[in-house]
Design a protein around this nucleic acid. Structure first.
Length: 460
RNA sequence: UCCCCAGUAGCUCAGUCGGUAGAGCAGAUGGCUGUUAACCAUCGAGUCCGCGGUUCGAGUCCGUGCUGGGGAGCCA
């Protein structure tokens, strides 16, 4: 007999003579001649109510079932006389698969996120985390669907990269050395003896690789894990996180911003449409302002302002800020929050940043002061996307690298792409977990990733 | 890395002026009941985060370390 998923059974149109379900007991209540079992199999937020009559042969055993135990049930799906559910399963037989003892730590009450973080292996069995990770799965699918419908190709860029190429933050080193006996040459580490024959690290971005494929396949994207060894202790940083990075040939900054806005809106409406039951949980119990914020994101256009206009708005606002702002200084979190949450109360795209605070690959504007970079800022989240039109002119690219003191030899293949048939191209990176936080209202990044990696924390 | 806050029963917390530990939930047992965070009664449950100090006496005060949370920086 084929196992039915609970979400299928709960959407039945008429009763069913025989059904088989398997799942985990959420709670059980005894009545005079039968027992109510709330069963969840992860297919949806809702539980299936099971009626286990005392005529079932192993009824004495069934009465010992505690929260967390796994069972297999065969029975009839009938309309429920109770108020809280349409259907219930009247069991004809119940097999106990695995008992959970009374020390099972998840009680049928609300737990704090901090407590559940200490049992990341069990927390997906709770309502909130089950909903979170169903949405995470659906969001991943929505990303692939969005790009596929637009003719993008999915590129798998390397996880292990050679040397400190991107220069974005602290790197995790990758080595096959015996750490107790590292080969040295004149006092410094001899990487020629290591697995790759040179220094290797975990990737901090797939961008440079993706650019090579955009210049071959046209429109591409990457979607994979990214690693930063920064000692960041905040609710929106993790050492291992997922990033989505589209890269488009023959694309300028305006078209890049168009795609970024379209992308965020599409993902938002996809999740609202496809995960309405799970989203209802977040709207009710996690963040009362969630739905109005998401609707605000979908209605109308994002605000687009240049960096210089943003600086002017902030300085003329009359608001007190901890950090002073002038041309050439980076926007602080307080400035970003002011723009998205107070001044505009909308998602904001800030573009054309000063070249002094921008990486080498962003395209230099004609004024020679700014580059064609852009950040998408969301209320409550801050920066969710960073992107740019890339510098496609080889001579300017090289002089920018020299200005910033980068070693051209390390980037020979990147420069080479500008030597042969170079074209204007653009792309951006979106923090996947931050998008999850935006969509669910969950305020800590550790709670939207299955097994979070943060400084001093890798227990699972 | 810096600043602030917290750490007491399995969980969430209370604990007064420094005088030796308490509630709800969970668990166990019994009762009741088409219940639905079920209900009622009874019972058990503690390295008060660790170390050091002050004191006749420390959960409480001081120092220090660890862990967790919030904010900042960096960023996605």
């Amino acid at each position: 007999m084929i196992r039915s998923k609970i979400n299928e059974l709960l959407s039945l149109e008429s009763s069913l003579d025989k059904a088989l379900v398997k799942g985990w007991v959420r709670t059980r209540r005894d009545s005079k001649s039968f027992s109510f079992i709330e069963l969840n199999d992860g297919s949806c937020l809702k539980n299936l109510q099971i009626i286990a009559a005392d005529t079932i042969e192993n009824y004495e055993q069934i009465k010992t079932l505690s929260t967390g135990s796994s069972i297999s049930v065969i029975g009839r799906m009938l309309e429920s006389p109770g108020k809280s559910q349409k259907w219930e399963l009247h069991a004809t037989s119940i097999d106990i698969i695995g008992l959970a003892t009374e020390i099972y730590p998840l009680q049928k009450k609300r737990h704090t996120d901090e407590f559940l973080r200490t049992m990341a292996h069990l927390r997906p069995r709770t309502n909130k985390y089950g909903a979170t990770f169903r949405i995470r799965s659906e969001l991943s699918f929505a990303i692939h669907q969005f790009f596929r419908e637009k003719g993008f190709r999915y590129v798998h860029t390397p996880i292990i990269t050679g040397s400190d190429c991107e220069g974005a933050g602290e790197l995790f080193h990758v080595t096959a050395f015996d750490l107790g006996d590292i080969p040295k040459n004149a006092g410094s580490i001899d990487f020629s003896m290591d697995f790759f024959g040179k220094e290797a690290n975990l990737t901090v971005s797939g961008q440079l690789s993706a650019e090579m494929f955009a210049l071959a396949l046209g429109d591409v994207y990457t979607f994979g894990p990214t690693f930063r060894a920064e000692n960041s202790n905040t609710r929106r940083h993790a050492a291992e996180f997922w990033m989505v990075e589209p890269e488009m040939a023959f694309c300028d900054l305006d078209e890049n911003m168009n795609l970024a806005e379209d992308f965020i809106k599409s993902l938002t409406s996809h999740i609202l449409n496809q995960c309405s039951e799970d989203m209802e949980l977040f709207a009710q119990f996690v963040d009362k302002g969630l739905m109005s914020r998401l609707e605000n994101t979908l209605s109308g256009e994002f605000i687009r302002i240049s960096y210089e206009d943003a600086v002017a708005i902030i300085n003329q606002s009359g608001h007190e800020f901890e950090y002073e702002l002038s041309f050439g200084k980076a926007l602080q979190a307080e400035h970003e929050r002011f723009l998205t949450e107070k001044h505009f109360d909308k998602p904001v795209i800030v573009y054309n940043y000063p070249k002094e605070i921008s990486p080498f690959y962003m395209r230099l504007n004609d004024n020679d002061r700014t580059v064609a970079g852009m950040d998408v800022l969301l209320p409550t989240i801050g920066e969710i996307i960073g992107g740019s039109q890339r510098e496609e002119r080889m001579d300017i690219l090289i002089s920018r690298m020299e200005e910033l003191g980068l070693n051209k030899q390390d980037y020979w293949w990147y420069i080479d792409s500008r030597r042969f048939g170079s074209v204007p191209h653009s792309g951006f990176g979106l923090g996947f977990e931050r998008m999850m936080m935006f969509l669910t209202g969950i305020s800590n990044i550790r709670d939207v990733i299955p097994f979070p990696r943060t400084p001093k924390s890798i227990d699972f």
